[in-house]
C-alpha cells in the first residue's frame, strides 16, 4: 500500500463523505491519528456536513486496515455487526459509512461516531475518578452482554458470520490448537496439558448465539459513571455465549487485581448472577470454567503469535518481541486452573 499523506487523506475523505451522504458540502477538521490500535489504524476528526442550508457537525473516527494483506471483507462485516448492535440499543458508536474500495483510502475502512471517554483499564482499576464506575460496571457489562447474545443474526442479515457446526466449543479448541501448532517455536507442556483438560470437558452447547469474541474491559469506553461504549467487534462470530463470559474472566485483563476475577472489578458469582437475571439463561459454572481455561489458553497462543509477528519480520517492534516472554504468565495461570 502506498502511504497516503494525512492532507491527501482528508481531501479524499471529504469527497467520500459528500458522495455517500449526498451532502452539498463537507468540511473536516482536527484530523489526527490516535495512539494504540495495534491491528487497525484509528483516526479522529470533526466533520461538518451541509445539505439544503442546514449544517450538522459530528465527532467521528475512521477505523482502517493497516495494509492490503488483510481479509478485505472484514471491515464491512464489523461495520454490519456494530450497526445491528446499535439498532438493538446496545451502547456502541453509531456507524456511518464503510468502504472496501482501495482507491478511496488505500485499504478498507469504516467511519463511526467518536465517543468521548477513557479506555485504559489501569485507570479504571486505580483512579479515584472511577470509584463509582468500578461499582456499577460488572452488572452493566453483564446486562450488555445478555443483550449482545440476544441479537438475531437473521433479522440483521449477519449471515456471513462463521458457523461453528454442531459443537462450538470443540470447533474453537481445534481452531486454536491448529494456530498453536503453527506458531509455537518451543515445546509448551503447560499448553498441551490445558488442551487435554479442555478436550475432556467440552460442554454440550445448548445455546448458539452471536458472540462478541473480544469482550474484556480493554475494549470498553467508560466514564466516571460507568460503561459508555463497547468496541472492537471484528472477532464476532456465532457460538456458545459462555465463551464471552469466560473471556471476561481471563487473568490478563485483571491487571494485578487478582482477588477480583471479572476484569479486576468483582467476583465471578455476581457477574454470572447479573447475566442470568438479564438474559433469563442459566450460567453453568462448569461451562464458564471451561471457557475461562480456554480464554487463558487463547491469550497464551496470541502472545506466541504476536512474538512471531516480530520474529518473522512482518512488524519489527520491541513491544511485540517482549510479549513473547509473557507466555509463561499464562502457562502458570493454566496450571493453577487445571491442577
Amino acid at each position: 500500500m502506498d502511504k497516503i499523506e494525512p492532507g491527501e487523506m482528508v481531501r479524499r475523505l471529504t469527497g467520500f463523505i459528500r458522495t455517500e451522504g449526498r451532502f452539498d458540502s463537507v468540511a473536516i477538521e482536527n484530523f489526527r491519528k490516535m495512539p494504540g490500535g495495534a491491528s487497525r489504524e484509528i483516526w479522529s476528526f470533526d466533520c461538518s456536513m451541509e445539505r439544503g442550508g442546514e449544517t450538522n457537525r459530528r465527532a467521528m473516527v475512521l477505523r482502517r486496515d493497516p495494509g492490503a494483506h488483510n481479509i478485505s471483507t472484514s471491515r464491512r462485516h464489523e461495520f454490519m455487526v456494530i450497526r445491528a448492535a446499535f439498532a438493538e440499543r446496545i451502547p456502541v458508536p453509531e456507524v456511518f459509512w464503510v468502504s472496501e474500495d482501495p482507491a478511496v483510502l488505500g485499504s478498507a475502512f469504516f467511519i463511526m461516531e467518536r465517543i468521548e471517554g477513557e479506555t485504559l483499564a489501569r485507570r479504571l482499576l486505580r483512579d479515584d475518578t472511577y470509584a463509582r464506575a468500578r461499582e456499577v460496571m460488572p452488572a452493566q457489562l453483564a446486562e450488555i452482554l445478555a443483550k449482545i447474545h440476544r441479537i438475531d443474526p437473521v433479522k440483521h442479515k449477519l449471515d456471513f458470520l462463521a458457523e461453528p457446526g454442531d459443537n462450538a466449543a470443540l470447533t474453537e479448541v481445534r481452531r486454536y490448537q491448529e494456530n498453536f501448532r503453527l506458531f509455537a517455536l518451543e515445546p509448551h507442556p503447560a499448553f498441551e496439558l490445558a488442551f487435554r483438560w479442555l478436550l475432556g470437558r467440552v460442554p454440550k452447547t445448548a445455546r448458539k448465539t452471536l458472540v462478541h469474541g473480544d469482550y474484556r474491559i480493554g475494549n470498553v469506553i467508560f466514564g466516571p459513571e460507568g460503561v459508555r461504549s463497547i468496541l472492537d467487534w471484528e472477532l464476532a462470530h456465532l457460538g456458545d455465549p459462555m465463551e464471552d463470559v469466560g473471556w471476561m474472566c481471563v487473568r490478563a485483563w485483571r491487571f494485578g487485581n487478582d482477588q477480583k476475577p471479572v476484569g479486576g472489578l468483582g467476583p465471578r458469582e455476581d457477574f454470572f448472577h447479573a447475566y442470568e437475571k438479564a438474559s433469563g439463561a442459566a450460567v453453568d459454572p462448569e461451562a464458564a470454567r471451561f471457557w475461562e481455561v480456554f480464554g487463558n489458553l487463547r491469550w497464551g497462543i496470541i502472545t506466541i503469535s504476536q512474538a512471531r509477528t516480530h520474529i518473522d519480520g512482518f512488524v519489527k517492534s520491541v513491544e511485540l518481541a517482549s510479549i513473547g516472554r509473557r507466555t509463561a504468565e499464562t502457562e502458570l495461570e493454566l496450571l493453577n486452573l487445571i491442577e
Binding site: P189, A190, L193, R325, R326, L332, L335, E339
Partner: peptide, 21 residues
C-alpha cells in the same frame, strides 16, 4: 508431570517477570 512443568514455568518467570511470580 504437573510438578516438573510448574517448576519449568516458574523458572521462566524468574527471568521474564519475577514480580508476577
Amino acid at each position: 508431570v504437573l510438578a516438573v512443568v510448574r517448576q519449568s514455568v516458574e523458572d521462566k518467570l524468574r527471568i521474564a517477570n519475577p514480580r508476577y511470580l
